[in-house]
């Protein structure tokens, strides 16, 4: 039975939750509005298609956009197959060995929480120096892949675990091969989880500066290949606002582009996933 005294307590909790939610949303909106307010004036077709000049104060961000795209491409083409593969292993094949999967999962969770600068130093020592890839988009993309993998694997694994057991049972009772079932049935239905992982991973990769400054580098020239050094949008924004007096306006413009890019990529990912999931 509910006592009258418990009611105000409930309300307080509700008020606290609403206040926190409102504060968080408001903060986010403030940041977004600030970037929109300052950045919208910068945004133009020319801004997107011309090369940066005068340390980034003038000109546009065409080379930065290409570098960012290439870094992301390298990162995803390595991390998606590897991440999904590991997730499949953990969720579908390692079920008989819970001890091992628990150990792997714990390691991944720790890795996911490691500060990006640590990945940056690792990438610098391993990809740039050890493997001799130098300051290059390849080094940067691979470093980001290491950073994104734990997030991707954990989310993808959740995706596979969320697949109804009825599919597995149904496939097994039809005598279907494991590989075929995986490819045709489990993968599409695990898509929501994969997309969540992908969106989180892309978000982290696009926002990254510390791990990239030591690997993909600072060069703002248009890259000719993934062997060239290239400056990502996030580093460009960081440099303009921190090291270049008078670079603020351009920094806002670049930040707006970054946010728009994230929105576009995320919507595209959800759209693809939805089509996939319906089996179309």
């Amino acid at each position: 039975m509910q006592t009258p005294s418990s009611k105000p307590g409930l309300d307080w909790a509700a008020i606290a939750i609403w206040t926190i939610a409102t504060l968080i949303t408001a903060t986010f909106c403030c940041i977004l509005l600030d970037i929109l307010w300052h950045g919208l004036g910068q945004l133009s077709w020319e801004f997107l298609t011309t090369a940066p000049a005068n340390a980034g104060r003038d000109g546009g961000i065409n080379s930065i956009l290409v570098s960012t795209g290439l870094i992301l491409l390298v990162c995803l083409s390595v991390s998606i197959p590897l991440g999904v593969g590991t997730a499949i292993f953990l969720a579908e094949f390692a079920r008989g060995n819970p001890q091992f999967s628990r150990w792997v999962r714990r390691s991944l969770d720790i890795l996911a929480g490691v500060p990006s600068i640590v990945f940056g130093l690792f990438g610098y020592a391993f990809f740039v120096q050890r493997l001799g890839l130098g300051f290059s988009i390849l080094s940067g993309g691979l470093t980001l892949a290491c950073m994104v993998l734990p997030i991707l694997i954990r989310a993808a694994e959740e995706g596979f675990r969320a697949v109804p057991d009825g599919y597995r049972l149904g496939a097994a009772s039809l005598g279907l091969s494991r590989w075929g079932t995986l490819q045709q049935v489990l993968l599409p239905s695990a898509m929501p989880g994969l997309v969540v992982g992908l969106v989180l991973g892309i978000g982290r990769a696009m926002a990254e500066t510390a791990a990239l400054i030591f690997t993909s580098g600072y060069v703002d020239r248009m890259p000719g290949s993934v062997w060239d050094s290239g400056r990502s949008l996030s580093i460009h924004i960081f440099d303009l606002s921190m090291n270049v007096p008078g670079g603020e306006q351009q920094a806002y413009g670049s930040a707006l582009v970054l946010i728009l890019l994230l929105i576009v990529i995320n919507s595209f990912a959800s759209w693809v996933a939805q089509r996939y999931q319906l089996g179309l």
Binding site: L70, L73, V74, S77, I137, G224, S225, V226, W227, D228
Partner: peptide, 11 residues
């Protein structure tokens, strides 16, 4: 795309 990017190399 990645392959194309790789193959063009440094000029």
């Amino acid at each position: 795309l990645l392959l194309t990017a790789c193959s063009s190399g440094s000029s």
